[in-house]
């Protein structure tokens, strides 16, 4: 049981590390996680947090070359605006709607208001 709790602690740390203090307006990179089909914005909160359906905790896409962990139990907690230029799994979605309600490809619908220029 200790292992079960330990894993959850790691995952929660990923969730909470980015929400302690709000950020000021950011410059938006060309390739952000929020526009990748592998990314899923958290449906509970809209502070820009989400998960990657391919990468797991331990992954680092901030560096070149990126470090990939594919087989962990805990997903990579990433953010809508995370710069994903070093991620080889990046797959940009098609944007078919920009009215901020259904926004992008309905298959991967998510809020993109933080991407507004």
């Amino acid at each position: 049981m200790a292992r079960r709790r330990e894993k959850a602690k790691q995952a929660l740390a990923g969730v909470f590390k980015q929400q302690v203090a709000p950020k000021t307006e950011e410059k938006i990179a060309d390739m952000v996680c929020g526009q990748c089909t592998k990314y899923s914005e958290n449906s509970w909160a809209s502070d820009g947090r989400g998960t990657c359906s391919v990468l797991s905790t331990g992954t680092n896409i901030d560096v070149d070359p990126a470090v990939y962990v594919l087989d962990g139990d805990i997903p990579l907690i990433t953010m809508t605006l995370t710069d994903a230029k070093y991620c080889k799994y990046y797959d940009r979605m098609k944007m078919i709607d920009s009215d901020n309600t259904e926004v992008s490809d309905p298959k991967y619908r998510r809020s993109t208001r933080q991407m507004q220029k």
């Binding site: 709790r5 894993k7 602690k9 969730v15 958290n42 449906s43």
Partner: peptide, 13 residues
């Protein structure tokens, strides 16, 4: 809370 339960709930699914 149980941390694993919370993680699952906060995942939003």
């Amino acid at each position: 809370y149980d941390l694993e339960d919370m993680m699952k709930i906060l995942a939003g699914c």
